[in-house]
Amino acid sequence: MLTKSDGVRVVVITGAGRAFCAGADLGVLEANGPALVAAGKDVALAIRTAPQPVLAVVNGPAAGGGANLALACDYRIASDQASIGQVFAQLGLVPDWGGTFFLPRLVGTAKALELVWSARMVSAPEALALGLFERVVPHAELQAEARRLAELWAGQPAGAVRRAKEALYRSDASSLASMLDLEIRQQNELFASPEARERIEGAGASLAKRSR
């Protein structure tokens, strides 16, 4: 997989057409729904365990499993024309592809229930206010802004980026003491890395030069 390659610094997921992902093809859902749902487990876990940042560039509607594909990503930048919705109830179904995990953690249980029970599409401004999108930009600027963000992250030390993702996701189910222990371990690993040593030495030299 791409996420196993050291040459891949950021993974970007976006739609090829006017939608980010409109959800399952109804023909596939009718013919082999269980397999499609099972595939969602593999996708969600692959995104969350990827060492790289995974950026969702939501260029249009993200519905059903497509909504939860976006929510599985580490960050969502969206077009002002985008929308997102847990539309499963329209088909007599419940959220899958990780929706029951991601949604309440982002918006709280009560709001998650409202979004699931209403099965409505949420506009980009409301999604931003709820925390479903981290950033909303004009549609014409979406790809350029997403690229700028991806390039910024790609320029950071890979070891620090990977450890930060690991730590912040682990904190959901950890105590303060265990997180402090993890911070100590991670920092000690990074202090020993050539990249961190070079950056620390460079920052020190720059500060000394400015103070002269």
Rank of each mutant, 00 (worst) to 15 (best):
Q187G: 01
G92F: 01
R48Y: 02
A110S: 12
Q156W: 12
G108E: 09
S206E: 11
R199Y: 02
S118H: 07
R185D: 08
G155C: 06
E183A: 14
Q90C: 06
L176Y: 09
R9T: 08
L45R: 14
V28N: 07
Q81V: 09
P125N: 10
L152I: 07
N68T: 03
A129R: 15
E30S: 15
A124M: 02
M179G: 01
E201H: 08
V161P: 08
R170L: 09
A56P: 08
L152Q: 12
G108V: 03
V54G: 03
A44C: 08
R18H: 09
E134M: 03
E166F: 03
A63E: 12
L45K: 13
D6G: 04
D80H: 10
P95Q: 09
A124N: 02
A196W: 15
Q187K: 06
Q156T: 06
S193E: 10
N188D: 13
G131N: 05
E198R: 14
S211E: 09
A110H: 09
S175G: 13
T109R: 11
L142H: 04
T49H: 11
G60P: 06
S178K: 15
L128C: 03
W117N: 15
L207K: 11
L128Y: 02
M121I: 04
G27V: 04
L180R: 12
S193K: 01
R212C: 06
E151T: 12
G202A: 05
M179H: 07
G64W: 04
E30H: 10
M121Y: 05
F88D: 14
V57H: 05
I84C: 08
V137L: 09
D25N: 12
A177Y: 04
A50G: 04
I84A: 08
V54W: 00
A164V: 15
L149T: 01
G65N: 05
P104C: 06
F102H: 03
A208M: 10
G66F: 01
V122H: 00
L176V: 14
A173G: 03
